[in-house]
Structures are given as structure tokens and as C-alpha cells.
């Protein structure tokens, strides 16, 4: 405890709460309010309405939500497999190649998403592989952008696993694959789930690469929100943003429940 006087503590809390409310509470509150606003020409909206949500739930927007969720799940699942595989494979390597490969697997997280989009656009608009204008290229972009995060999460989990678990298992006669299945994977399960959650959230909010490469008919929510706000339908955009945020959070909360169950066991 840093501040001992009661008054001082209350002052510190109040200040922090105020800053927190302005910096984080206000933007979310305003988006939420805007998503229900009929008209907002004054300090506060003149009346509230559900029409933006009604718009969001039919036609293009509903389809975009579906596209985002499908893309998020598919890319996250692929990234989870690839990232876990990489993290597991690197675990037993010698120090130097391990560090070198570790950097390689992390690099995609450092490259700006727009450049990743551009690179995919350039690479897959020419032979040998033509993917421009397909859904696959969106999936690839999301996969590339989130793979480093899944890799990072899983290898962090593996690094925190005391080596004794695996050694004891091995001394008890467990072969490599048996150890992986019965000891390592169950013990890093919370990290796998966390990795998947993070990937999914990142994919759901991805804009930079998607906006460069999305084909007609495979529009993700962020792209849809941008075109709505670009057209001036900011209330519809707000409603869609709320849907995006809430569906992301639902998945996150659901997965963290599974994760805490897995770690409690």
C-alpha cells in the first residue's frame, strides 16, 4: 500500500476512476448509446430506437457477421494447430536454432497488416497460385496475422511448464506421443484456449489486411462497419460495432470459462 491516509486513498481512487471512465467507459458508452439513437443532433439523442439493430440483423450485415465468425474460427483453428505445432517442435531444439526460429515465427506479428495484405495481393495475383478474389486469401491473411500470437501464447505456456512433469512421465515409461497427449497438452490446455481466444478476437477486429484483399461476397464485419461509417450511416455502424464487440466478448468469456475449468482440474 502506497498511500496510507484515507483521504489520500479516496483521492487517488477518484482520480483513477475518473480517468478510467473518461478514457474507457465513455467511448464504449457512447457507441452503445449511438447504436440505439434515432437522431442525435443535441447533447443527447432525441429518441431511442432499435431500428439499427433490426438493420444489422438482416441482409448484408447479418451476412457479414457470419463471414467474420466463420473466418475467425477457421483462421484461429488453423493458427492454433500451426502455432502449437511450432511451439512444441521448437521446445526440444538446441538453443541457437531455437532462438532463430522463434524470431521467425514471431515476425508476422511485427509486420503491418496493410503490408501483409498487399504482399498476399501481389503474390497470389500471379502464377503459380491464383487466389486473388477468393475467400481463401482472406483466411490466409487472418491466419498469417494471428499465427504469431498463438505461437507466442502456446510457447509461453510450455515455457512455464516445469520440466519435471515430462521427465517423471518419461521415467514412468511414457513414450513421446503418449507424454504429449496425456501430460503436456492437458497441462497447457489453458494456454491453448487463451491462444484461440486471442486469435479469434484479433481476427474479428482485423481491418488492415482484409480491406486490401476481400472479394465481393466475403465482407467481414470491420469492413462492413467502415463502409457504413464512410457512407455516413454512423448509427448503423455503431450497432454493428456493438454486435462485433459483444459477439467477440461472448466467445472470449465462454472460452475463458472452459479454460478455468481446465486449469482447476
Amino acid at each position: 500500500m502506497l498511500v496510507w491516509s484515507r483521504a489520500g486513498r479516496i483521492l487517488a481512487w477518484t482520480a483513477a476512476a475518473l480517468v478510467f471512465a473518461i478514457v474507457y467507459g465513455l467511448p464504449i458508452g457512447v457507441i452503445a448509446l449511438a447504436s440505439f439513437s434515432g437522431q442525435w443532433n443535441d447533447v443527447l439523442p432525441s429518441h431511442l430506437t432499435l431500428v439499427h439493430y433490426a438493420n444489422a440483423l438482416r441482409g448484408d450485415s447479418a451476412e457479414q457477421a457470419q463471414v467474420s465468425i466463420v473466418t475467425g474460427f477457421a483462421a484461429s483453428a488453423a493458427a492454433l494447430i500451426c502455432g502449437s505445432w511450432a511451439a512444441l517442435a521448437l521446445r526440444n531444439l538446441a538453443r541457437l536454432p531455437k532462438r532463430a526460429l522463434d524470431v521467425l515465427f514471431f515476425v508476422p506479428s511485427a509486420v503491418p497488416s496493410v503490408s501483409v495484405g498487399l504482399a498476399l495481393l501481389v503474390a497470389f495475383s500471379q502464377p503459380p497460385v491464383l487466389l486473388n478474389g477468393t475467400r481463401a486469401i482472406v483466411l490466409i491473411a487472418h491466419f498469417v496475422l494471428i499465427s504469431a500470437f498463438t505461437y507466442g501464447n502456446v510457447s509461453a505456456g510450455l515455457a512455464r511448464l516445469p520440466p519435471e512433469y515430462e521427465q517423471v512421465a518419461e521415467s514412468l515409461g511414457a513414450r513421446p506421443f503418449y507424454r504429449l497427449r496425456r501430460v503436456i497438452l492437458p497441462l497447457v490446455a489453458p494456454y491453448l484456449i487463451a491462444a484461440f481466444s486471442l486469435s479469434f478476437a484479433l481476427s474479428m477486429g482485423e481491418l488492415g489486411a482484409t480491406v486490401m484483399i476481400y472479394p465481393p461476397g466475403w465482407v467481414t464485419l470491420p469492413v462492413g462497419i467502415f463502409s457504413l461509417s464512410d457512407r455516413g450511416s454512423i448509427f448503423d455502424a455503431s450497432a454493428l460495432t456493438m454486435i462485433l464487440a459483444i459477439s467477440t466478448l461472448i466467445v472470449l468469456v465462454g472460452l475463458s470459462r472452459i479454460s478455468s475449468k481446465a486449469s482447476v482440474r
Binding site: 521427465q167 517423471v168 518419461e170 521415467s171 514412468l172 515409461g173 511414457a174 513414450r175
Partner: peptide, 8 residues
Amino acid sequence: PYARNIGM
């Protein structure tokens, strides 16, 4: 190690 039949 897994083939040594030791308890640890």
C-alpha cells in the same frame, strides 16, 4: 529414459 524401468 522411458525404457529404463526406474521409479523417480
